[in-house]
Amino acid sequence: MRVLVILEERGGHISRTSWEAATAALRLAPMQEITAVVIGAQTELPAAEAAAKAFGKVIRVEHPLLAPYTSDGYCAALHQLIQQEGPTQVVFPHTYQVRDYAPALACRSGQALIGDVIEIADGPVFTRQLMQGRLNGSYRHAGNGPCFVSVQAGAFRAELPDAAAATPIETFTPAIDAAQIRTRPGEPFRGSAQTVDLGSAQWIVSVGRGIREAENLPLVQELATALGAELAASRPICDNGWLPMERQVGSSGQSVAPRLYLAVGISGAIQHLVGMKGSQCIVAINKDPDAPIFEVADYGIVGDLFEVVPALTEAVKAAKQ
């Protein structure tokens, strides 16, 4: 077996999802048969980071035209690498960037990517979700070239043995011509920060009538700040003018789908539910154990918000340090 794992850098370090992908690769081959690949215009630091793990070797795919990322550049470079290395499998973390180039890269070898894999069983048989998670499908590689696999974030817990001896590091310089790169990516930027944009917020703390008075709002504001979350509300809060209308979540307000929606003192009326049901993780804090909000919540705390919220703020602050 010869497995290539393509690692990605995020904020100066190899990303967690990359380590997870490398861990997944262990289901395909032992550590020494796995080659870690770092790619970019400058790869010295990530290569060193990768070399701290017990990979068979680390390859630095380096070329000035590989920064910033372009699909054209990555495909050209990695295709050359694959031709040179002749791997049996190529494993990626299933990130937005990988989704942008890996299908084309696989195609260039006459293969199809098995994407967003959540499980790898003997065979190897790869499991991925179908029908928005309602079904699982198991796949086998049937082509006669390398098998391309991308691994879902969080599906594997990153656990890699550290290198006992120095891991060999090789450098691979692909031949890329500037004319091959047809797209011109701009600098990344944040979504409009000045206006309230609940629709694209990733974390939301939402407050309802359980807060009783406008004077108590700083309590939840603090929790929101600790979480780095936007503050939202149910209709009565906005009706009273305690928070502006554009912070109202629900059928006559905003529809939101953050990763975390924390509902504080909100009962869960249907008009509110329709605005936040698409959230990835819903947490409810309510003193009424029968409040309908608990029906849709993933986690619930039954209790007085005036006790729970300050405690939670503290716990979040502690966890973030």
Binding site: G268, A269, I270, L273, P292, E295
Partner: peptide, 9 residues
Amino acid sequence: CMGGYDPKG
């Protein structure tokens, strides 16, 4: 719709 999805329904 209300009987099927609305908590009150």
